[in-house]
Design a protein around this nucleic acid. Sequence first.
DNA 1: CGGGACAAATCTCATACAGT
DNA 2: ACTGTATGAGATTTGTCCCG
Length: 767
Amino acid sequence: MITKIRLYNLQQLLFLNDNPIYSLREKDIIRYKKIFTTQLKNHYILECIKMLKTQNFSIAINDTVDKMEIIGGNILIKDILPEEIYFDNLRSIKKLNIMFADQILTLDGKNLLTLKEILGKRFKKFFSPNRSLIEKSWKIIEDCILDNNEVIKRRISIEARNKIGTSFAHNLKGTILTKMNSDSEPINNGFIFGKKKLYNDIILVYGKNYNLGSNNIVLEHYIMVNNPDDLFMGLKKCLGCFLDETSTIGPLERIHKQSNCLVNLRIEDVYFLENYLHSHAIIIHETDSYIVPDIIQSHIESNIWHEHNFIIEPLLFKQDDIRLNIFESNMQKSTQNCIEKYVKKEKFNKNLSIEKLNVINYKLIQQLGEQIFVYIDGSVINNGTENIDGIAGLHFYDKDHKLIDEFYVNIEHWISPSKAEVTSFIIALIIVHNISNVEIITDNEFIFNYFNDIICKTEIYNTRKLLKTHNNIYIWALIRQFIDLNEIIIPKITKIKAHDDDLYHNFLDQQIKGRYSDRNRVFLVNFNFFQLDKIEYMLTWNNIIIEKPIRRFIRYYNEILNLEKFFNLRRNRKYTIDSVEWAITFEFLKENENFLQTNFHTTKLLRYKIKNLIEEILTVEQRKLINFDIYKDWKCPVCERKKETFGYVWLCYSNRKRMRNIIYYSIICLIEKIKEYDIYTFYETKIIDLFINESFGEVKVDNNKLTFVDIIKGLFPKLLADFLRQEIKMTKVHIFETGVKFLDFVFDSTHKIWVDRCDLQKDKEKV
DNA sequence: CGGGACAAATCTCATACAGT
DNA sequence: ACTGTATGAGATTTGTCCCG
C-alpha cells in the first residue's frame, strides 16, 4: 500500500498518464531527473524502475486499477510534441494541467485553442504568478503544432493532424459556457449571444442585452464585421435586418438608445460572450462598433453547436472517465466457469483450446459420477540445445479403462521436464474441476508430494511464500488458489513408477513422442495469471514472465551476461573463429580451491594466470604504456634485439630450444596422463601427429588460428578435446582431468621462462 | 549510529532422477 | 554416459529489531 502511494506520488510529479512502472522508458527517466533534480535525487523507486528498464525487465500488471491510468483523451500531448520540446516545457505543461491533445484543441479537433481559452477551462489548476514562463512555453508549443501557412486560422499542421486524427468530441472537454438566467442583472458593456430558430434552421445572433424579461431576452442585434477565424471579434450595430422584431415585442421598459434591430430570444438559449466583469471590449464611437480582443468566433460557435447536439441527442454525450465500465466488467468475470476463467483467450485461434477443454469436461460429466482415470505426463526432447521442445499429454479413461479422450499441450517459455509435468497436472485439475470420483495418475514424485503438502497445510499462504516456490511459481500459485477458494473438487492422486509395466502410462508416453512430428492436434494453453488474487505484479524479462524465484533468475541472468561479455571482448575475437574448450580453461583457472577458503599462494597464482590469459603480464611493451619515458628504448631483456610483446616472450630466439622441449614434454605428459587411467587404448603417434599437423603445436602468433602461445595462456583447443572424445573415447570427466593437468604442466614449465626473464629484467632495472 | 541477537534468504556442494 | 533440474544440508550473508 505504501509503495502504491509512493507510485501515485511519482506519477503526480512526473505528470504521467499511467503507472510509472508500466510505460516509463529509460531515456525518459534520465530526462525527468534533469528537470526535477532535487525531488528525484536518490529517489528509491525511480532508481529501481530505471534499473529494471536498463536490464530489459518489466512488470506485467494484474489489474486495470493497478495501471493507475488517467482516463481521458486518446492522444497524449507527449506524443504529438517533439520530445525535446515536451521535456523543455514540462513544467509549464504541468502547470496548465494539459495531458491530452483534446484539451488544447477545438472540439472538432482541427484548430488549436488560445492560451486564454485554455485558462478559461475547467481543468485549470491554481495559477502561479509566473505567467511569462507559461506564455513563453505556449508560444513554443504553438509553433510546433500550428500549420505554418494557416497560423491566423489556428489550424493544426498536417503532421499533428495525422497523429490526432478526427473524431467527434463526446463532451465539452472542460469548456465553461456561462448562460444567462433570469436573476442576472442587465448589463451594458458585455456582449451576449444566443440561438435563434429561423424557419427550420438555427442561427446564432450576437448583440447586447437590451432588456431582461422573465422568460425572454430582448437583444440589440450586432453584426460581425470580420473573419470568424480572427483572434478578435468586431461587432457593429445592426441598422435593421430581417431579424428585426421590434414591432412584435411591444412596449419596453427601458429605452435609452435608438435601436433599429431588436431580437427576441428564450433565456435558456442565451450565453455571455465573455466574462462581463473582465470585459475588454473596445468601443469605436464614430461607427458605433466594438472590438472584442482575444476571442475567436469560430471556436465559440463550435462549442455552442456541440452543446446543442448533446441537447438534441443526449446519447452522444459521454464522460471521458469510463471507470464505471471497468467495475461492470469485473462483475461479469465472476460468472465464468473455471476453464474460461483460468485459460487465457487467444486472439486468433478462436479459443480453440478452451473449446476442446470444455468438450472434454462435458464428456466427463456424461460419465455421471463413475470412476474416471486421468493419466498425465510431460516430455522434453533436445534438452540442453536450442531445439528444445516440450509437450504435455493427458489421457482420460472411464471405469472400464476405455479411452474417453486425449489432450496434448505445447510447452512454451522456460521449457523443462518439470514444467511439462506441472502443466499437464494443472490442465487435468482444470478439466475435472467439477467432477467427482477422479483419479489422476502421475509418474512425477515432486507433483505428488507437493500437491499433498498443499492439501494438508492449514497455514495461510501469502505472496512472499508463493514467490519462493522453486519453479513454475505462477502455475503452482494457481493450483493453490483452486484449493484455497474451493474452486475444484480435489481428485485422488496416485504415483506410479516411470517406465514401469503400467500399460496405460506407457501408451501415453509413446503417444506424446509421436506428437513431436505431428503438431496438428497439439494445443496451446496459456494460463490467465491475472486471475491470481495474491499476485498483482509479475516480473517479466523481454515480455516473458519469469517463473523462477527472482533472485535465482537474476543470478543466472548475470552469469550468462558476464560470460557473454567476456566472450565478446575484442581480444577474444580469435577464439570465436577457432573454438576453445572453455570448460577446461575455467577449471584450470579455478586452482582446485574451495569456494570458502583461500590462501596467498593460490591467490597469487590465480592473479598471474588471469593476467596471462588476457595478455596483460608486465612485458616491456606493457610498461611503455605506463612509463613511456623510461622504457621507450628498452628491448626484450633476454635477447636485447626486438620489442617485447606478449607473444615475443615465448617466440624469443634465446628461448627457441627451451620451447621446443616444453612442447615435446607436454605431449609426453598428456600421453602419460591418458595412460594412467589404464582403460584407453590409442596410438601415441596419432597425438604427436596432431601436434605436428595442427597450428596449436607451433610457437607463433596468429590472428586466426590457435597456436601453442594460446595453450600457454591456458586455452585448451577444442580440436584436441574432440580428438580425445572421439578417437580415444574418453569420458567427459577424464578429459576434464587430463586437460587441466596438461594445462598445469604447460603453465608450470612456461612460467619458469617468465620467471627467468623477470630476473634478467630486474637486474637490468637495478642498473 | 553501531553492535548483538535472531530470523530469513542465499549460496555451494553433493546427490538423485528422468530423459535422450 | 551425459544433461539439466530438484532437493537437502550446512555455511554464510542479509535484514530486522532493540538497546545504549
